[in-house]
Write a protein that binds this DNA or RNA. Structure first.
Length: 246
DNA sequence: ATTCATGTTGTGAT
DNA sequence: TATCACAACATGAA
């Protein structure tokens, strides 16, 4: 579920609850869920992997983490972390992290950092990357402060699409290559969104969870890499390492 | 049956 | 004080 494009789908599916009043609330969250009862939803928004239910004065932030899920107008056996009932349906979240955001969302979030947002600002991303020249690109793409919404699948696919080795240093990328990484982080995220909506995302993976390079036919490398130590799939022949090994 | 993974936060050690 | 490594969370797919 949980990369940025999937949260956009959630936001679109939940849009029918905008303007609706919470009639019933329940769930096993430790938060004071009662706070939402009787309150009207001002907006349903998202920032990166955060799904935001905005009320007047505060918002509920839902993060699906690795295993989280949701159901609209449906239930399952597992106990919901939070269940919101409206006159026109229900919104259920399972195995997720909840948090209240106090005050206006525009003060809590910089929408320019969300790769899925209309406000996305590639120049700002470049400026942030300039401050971490020693970071590996496989870590930089997962940095939610730079690329909010990018997750491990998008990371792997983008690096293959731009033919950059995941262990490359941010500061060693030629400026045009860095520009392509920033551009493709957004472009592929929207491609991901379209494929996911059509239920054909998985079949379009080029390297993620794959064993052979679609470009040269060679065996893909698979290793846990970077300070985040996440699964990384790449082709040592087709993806260029910056700086080049000595 | 067992392992592992689209992710983040908090804790305790260094 | 700051940084780091790891545990915890929790569920379905392979």
């Amino acid at each position: 579920m949980p990369e940025g494009p999937s949260i956009v789908i959630l936001r679109e599916e939940a849009a029918k609850f905008r303007g609706r009043t919470v009639r019933e609330v329940s769930g096993n969250s430790k938060l004071d869920l009662e706070r939402m009862r009787g309150r009207k939803i001002v907006a349903l928004r998202s920032w990166g992997k955060h799904f935001l239910i905005e009320f007047r004065g505060f918002s509920l932030r839902v993060h699906l983490l690795l295993f989280g899920s949701y159901l609209i107008d449906a239930e399952k056996e597992a106990a919901p972390r939070v269940s919101l009932r409206f006159d026109n349906g229900t919104l259920n979240f399972y195995a997720c992290s909840l948090k209240y955001i106090e005050g206006p969302l525009d003060e809590a979030y910089d929408w320019r950092g969300d790769v899925m947002a209309p406000e996305w600002d590639p120049k700002l991303a470049r400026a942030k990357l300039k401050k971490q020249p020693d970071a590996l690109v496989c870590d930089a793409l997962l940095d939610q402060d730079v690329f909010a919404g990018v997750g491990n699948i998008i990371k792997n696919e983008v690096l293959f699409r731009i033919r950059v080795h995941p262990a490359s240093k941010v500061g060693a990328l030629p400026p045009r290559t860095l520009g392509r990484m920033i551009e493709d982080a957004r472009a592929y995220s929207f491609q991901f969104l379209e494929w996911k909506k059509q239920y054909v995302l998985r079949q379009h993976w080029l390297v993620h969870n794959k064993s052979l390079c679609p470009n040269c036919g060679g065996k893909l490398a698979r290793q846990h890499m970077g300070v985040r130590n996440r699964r990384t799939f790449f082709c040592v022949r087709c993806q260029v390492l910056y700086p080049p090994p000595a």
